Simulated scan of single mutants.
Amino acid sequence: MDEQTRVTVTNPRTQANCDKQSYTDYEITIQSDNSAFWLPQSTVRRRYSEFVWLREKLQRTGRELPDMPHKTLFRRFDNAFLESRCEGLERFLQSIIQKKVFLADRRVHLFIQSQLTTNEIDGIVSGDYRYDETLTMAQRKDRTTSTAETDHELSDELSDIEKEEQ
């Protein structure tokens, strides 16, 4: 049986942070029957800068990486630009998950299937955080649950883990 994985990047949403600076985030949805993913379906939101972070981390493998849409200071909130960027980010992720070397990287899974920050992902990958208990808890939930529904629990678990280690 062929395993099927579909990843989409859609619904760009522009908003302002606490400093009243505008940014856009993108909805990543993945549907997969590939056992490499711990949830068969999930949806998260990521900023362009987080995609750049993922690409920089994966560059360290020495493997060839797909291109990403370029950063721009002009037209960055233009609808046509945002749609084009969604398509480019989707091609980037689709290419990443097709290569076993990248599919084996925990950063890819945490990026696509959790709301963890890039710093938290780094902490988990480096071993500074233990994520196994949280991952087990997420697996016990209804496996079609969106990661957005488990985020609060994941965040609480990470906070508890950090407190235990201090």
Results as ranks from 00 to 15, higher is better:
V52M: 06
W53R: 06
L54D: 02
R55F: 02
R55M: 03
R55Y: 04
E56P: 05
E56Y: 10
K57M: 12
K57H: 02
Q59W: 04
Q59T: 13
R60F: 05
R60Y: 05
T61L: 15
T61C: 01
T61H: 08
T61P: 00
G62N: 08
G62S: 05
E64Q: 07
E64F: 10
L65D: 03
L65Y: 01
L65I: 11
P66T: 09
P66A: 05
D67W: 05
D67E: 08
D67P: 12
M68K: 10
P69Y: 12
K71R: 15
T72P: 10
T72V: 14
T72W: 09
L73A: 15
L73F: 14
L73W: 10
F74Q: 06
R76G: 02
R76L: 10
R76Y: 08
F77T: 08
F77W: 06
D78G: 06
D78L: 06
D78C: 12
N79G: 06
N79Q: 11
A80E: 13
A80L: 13
F81W: 12
F81Q: 11
F81Y: 15
F81P: 01
L82P: 05
E83F: 07
E83Q: 15
S84C: 14
S84V: 07
S84K: 15
C86L: 03
E87D: 14
E87G: 13
E87Q: 15
E87Y: 13
G88T: 02
L89Y: 01
L89V: 05
L89H: 04
E90Q: 14
E90G: 12
R91W: 02
R91T: 07
F92S: 06
F92H: 06
F92P: 01
L93D: 00
L93G: 03
L93C: 00
L93P: 02
L93I: 15
S95M: 04
S95L: 05
S95T: 13
S95Y: 08
I96V: 12
I96A: 04
I97F: 10
I97T: 02
I97V: 15
Q98C: 10
Q98V: 08
Q98M: 09
K100I: 04
V101S: 09
V101D: 07
V101L: 07
V101G: 00
V101I: 15
L103F: 06
L103I: 00
D105R: 08
D105S: 08
D105K: 12
R106D: 14
R107C: 10
R107G: 01
R107V: 04
R107K: 11
V108P: 06
H109S: 10
H109R: 02
L110M: 08
L110C: 05
F111P: 00
F111T: 11
I112Q: 07
I112T: 05
I112E: 04
I112N: 07
Q113E: 10
